[in-house]
């Protein structure tokens, strides 16, 4: 597993897009994230790995302030996007989320047509001036999400009528249609078959040329295949963070080693 090819791991890493320092997250009294420091580089794929319930999704949701919607959730510490504090009073979370897109753990298409699902973001952000531009955006997004071939003849059909894996790719298409600068993906492939997974991984690699991608995954192979940086979470702590090949071949913490070799999880 450790010698799985890591695509483009030689690409030089640029300066950081998102920096998080001293981040704590509480759900009421539950301390879900404990003092996490991490730098997410531009034009890089960063993988978050760790056992279930360790706080990967929670931390990911801090990065585009989706945790604001949970009443009991409290975030402490600093998270900066391009050097600007995203928890600053002046920040409008809506504007932030247009820059930092998200694909959720469970597919959640709108109960509207496939076309409207993908076009929605472009519509509300005014990205298309006319119908043909919008059509082009929709087609491009669906192609990138490896879904175009399956749905091109039924763009008017409801998005909720697709299979689970197709729905997840639809959600990916919806997220990339707005051209975010950072794309957060929470286990995007957990419902996909190997072929679709490969297509999504290809998409992630393609996105890396322009965006930062943060991907949560339970698959070591996937993390090794698509990411350049890997962060290992355990019980709310960021145990280890570094270059993917290093984490997988020469981890410095024994918990990391136990996890990737399958002894804790």
């Amino acid at each position: 597993m450790f010698d799985a090819p890591t695509i483009g791991s030689t690409v030089e890493l640029q300066d950081s897009k998102i920096t998080a320092s001293g981040v704590h997250v509480f759900y009421g009294d539950t301390h879900a994230i404990k003092d996490v420091n991490v730098n997410i580089a531009a034009k890089t794929v960063t993988a978050f790995i760790g056992p279930s319930g360790c706080g990967k999704s929670t931390f990911l949701r801090c990065l585009n302030r989706m945790n604001d919607t949970i009443d009991t959730c409290r975030v402490e510490g600093n998270i900066h996007l391009d050097g600007e504090d995203i928890y600053d009073r002046r920040v409008d979370p809506v504007q932030l989320r247009a820059k930092v897109g998200m694909v959720f753990q469970k597919p959640n298409p709108f109960p509207k047509s496939i076309y409207d699902n993908v076009a929605y973001g472009a519509r509300i952000h005014g990205l298309a001036r006319n119908k043909s531009e919008l059509d082009a955006i929709v087609e491009k997004a669906l192609r990138r999400a490896a879904l175009w071939g399956e749905v091109k003849d039924r763009l008017g059909a409801p998005g909720t009528g697709l299979s689970g894996g197709q729905q997840q790719r639809l959600c990916i298409a919806r997220a990339v249609a707005t051209e975010p600068e950072v794309l957060l993906m929470d286990e995007p492939c957990s419902a996909l078959d190997p072929i679709a997974t490969a297509q999504v991984e290809e998409l992630i690699d393609d996105l890396r040329t322009r965006f930062s991608v943060v991907i949560v995954t339970h698959s070591m192979q996937q993390a090794a295949r698509v990411s350049q940086k890997t962060a290992f979470f355990h019980l709310g702590h960021l145990v280890e963070f570094g270059d993917t090949p290093t984490i997988f071949t020469n981890p410095s913490d024994e918990r990391t080693e136990s996890y990737i070799t399958g002894r804790i999880g």
Partner: peptide, 8 residues
């Protein structure tokens, strides 16, 4: 979440 996630 889906709507907020695409920046609505």
């Amino acid at each position: 979440d889906a709507a907020l996630g695409v920046g609505a």
